[in-house]
Amino acid sequence: MYSWLSVPSYWRSRSRRYMLIGGKCNNCDYKFFPFRRTCPRCGSHLISEEKLPRKGRVLDYTVVHNPPRGYEYYTPYVIALVELENGAKVLTQLTDVDPEEVKEGMEVEMSLRILRVCGESGFIAYGYKFRPVVK
């Protein structure tokens, strides 16, 4: 049970995950990800959807050596907190980079990658990941 991935759960947030759509507080202008209907900073309910910038820099990162079920094939992989150009923070995997090359402050941009493949017969989960800027 703990390793299964629910299709409806994936499906309902796919657009926000594909396009990095977060929340913007119309009261205090705070931008955040993932989207929700209350502001994490001021508590306002005046939230609208906001397409977030695709570029940012690495705040903190970690190389995962102890993956959950379903992520074995990708190990070791990098999980990072990225601060986007508008200040919103995103939790993300970093891809196209050797773990040793990752540095705080490194500039990264969004791409879409396979998050996991559910066995031989299950569906394929795609989502945003960040990578060093191509050019």
Binding site: Y73, Y74, Q93, T95, D96, S111, L112, R113, I114, L115, I124, Y126, K129
Partner: peptide, 13 residues
């Protein structure tokens, strides 16, 4: 391809 790439991710880029 990288381990997290397939025809869809290539097409997307």
């Amino acid at each position: 391809p990288g381990i997290d790439e397939d025809t869809f991710t290539i097409a997307y880029e």
